[in-house]
């Protein structure tokens, strides 16, 4: 298995040119070739979801993908969430406030799962969020506070959006409201 493939990956807005064995998983490339160790590996068979990243905006298991499969995609990992100066995102802040993490091992997977889901379904109810939380495994929290954190983040984002709309000076062109 000495074959090496040249792979171009786009991760968190940066381009990386890699020479890697084709059997190397996306999770291993992110963690060990790019040093983005925030993405964790918990089962290597697609059940636990600790390795969840966004591939073109959609949550995906990085342990079930070969890096070579996602050459033309935009990959986002947990390292993309906080501000460059280290300030936590609203979602991360909600996890902290609701004690949605204990050991923190599953946390990056849940954060990316929620980041992808809320972008698609900003109006999600708590029950719908709970169903999505059931995609990944956590051994510490019992899931309740993870669900609370994501639900609270969704509420805050909706409130912020509403506030922005309320304070907008003029309806934008083409608005159907």
């Amino acid at each position: 298995m000495t074959d090496v493939a040249l792979v171009e990956l786009h991760v968190n807005g940066e381009r990386h040119d890699l020479a890697i064995p084709p059997r190397r998983t996306l999770a291993d490339v992110l963690r060990h070739d790019l040093g983005l160790t925030g993405t964790h590996v918990g089962c290597e068979h697609g059940i636990c979801g600790a390795c969840t990243v966004l591939v073109d905006g959609a949550p995906a298991r990085a342990c079930l993908l070969f890096a070579i499969q996602v050459e033309n995609a935009e990959i986002r990992t947990v390292e993309s969430l906080a501000d460059p100066d280290g300030g936590l995102s609203d979602l991360q802040q909600c996890f902290s406030e609701h004690h949605g993490l204990q050991c923190g091992f599953c946390t990056p997977g849940f954060l990316m799962l929620a980041e992808g889901y809320l972008a698609e379904e900003p109006e999600a109810t708590r029950e719908e969020i709970r169903e999505v939380v059931a995609s990944n495994l956590c051994r510490c929290t019992g899931y309740q506070t993870i669900t609370d954190a994501i639900d609270d983040c969704a509420s805050r984002r909706r409130a912020a959006l509403q506030a922005a709309l309320d304070t907008a000076p003029e309806p934008t062109a083409g608005s159907t409201a």
């Binding site: 925030g38 390292e79 936590l88």
Partner: peptide, 10 residues
């Protein structure tokens, strides 16, 4: 513990 664990910097 939270800031580093949430940022993927544990």
């Amino acid at each position: 513990e939270d800031p580093r664990l949430l940022a993927g910097r544990g």
